[in-house]
Design a protein around this nucleic acid. Sequence first.
DNA 1: ATTAATGCAAAGCATTTGCAATAGA
DNA 2: TCTATTGCAAATGCTTTGCATTAAT
Lengths: 153, 153
Amino acid sequence: MNCNNLSISVAEAARVFREYLHEEGLRCTEQRLDVLRAAWAAAGHFSAGELHAMLGAEVSRATVYRTLDCLVRAGLLREVLQGRERTYYEPCARRGHHDHMLCVACGKVIEFCDERIERLQDAMCREKGFRPIDHRMGIRGVCRECRGKEDAQ
Amino acid sequence: MNCNNLSISVAEAARVFREYLHEEGLRCTEQRLDVLRAAWAAAGHFSAGELHAMLGAEVSRATVYRTLDCLVRAGLLREVLQGRERTYYEPCARRGHHDHMLCVACGKVIEFCDERIERLQDAMCREKGFRPIDHRMGIRGVCRECRGKEDAQ
DNA sequence: ATTAATGCAAAGCATTTGCAATAGA
DNA sequence: TCTATTGCAAATGCTTTGCATTAAT
């Protein structure tokens, strides 16, 4: 897997979404595009609730959830960092994939990717006869800045 | 990290738990020990609900949840595979750590561990100045058996 | 005796769903 | 027109919590 983390533009995402909807015989509604735009406007990660807050009364909560599922199926978003509390999403990179480090002190998310790790994961799957669809890796810990603060105390 | 996956015996787990409770000024109740025993009786992974079902009326649902938190704090259990739906737990290996593959077809969990991956993760953390506490890696996909069934169709 | 832990039932919260109204195609 | 989609409110399912009772130390 390639570790370049370039996600596509809103415009291209919208184009891909329209295409997906058309192919599936689904309808391209204003609400669906609103959700897509909000998802792209949100820098990095976001939850369904955050997106709903951004959209105000434009789109109902139920529709936000339904559209997020739709965008995942369209291959435009992926679910990441499923915590105990809520599901987070982020735009799929056109090329590339990355994993996450979560700072337990400040909540910051650091993205990283290592092709060697990806290759080893693929190797493990082959070894077990497992066909991978998706994976997620999250490392919880303390980031450089928060370590600095701890030391200062 | 060592990939040996030997978890400690119930007896030793109970000893560690008692010690932890004592140190923290907490009380060693029959219910807490019941939960610990059930956790060790459950092969591999289990959810709070499954444990509560195993225990029947011996321990209330609320106490199962409270005790699971307690066991995690004691370092005896860890949370794994936090899916959208519920939290799973498993006994901490005394030495050793492993990751998971989840078959989306049959729900089976395959454990694996690769020291090279662990080392690379540690290297990524050092590179980012990140102090790791814990990590989880899950690969979703289709297991060998389910792939066989798919092919047979 | 103290006071932490329990059980119950109710509350919380993210997410899903039934259904009548709305609006793409 | 036809039927997928929406919004609302209620439901779901896991988890947490308030509080009176019980029990460990």
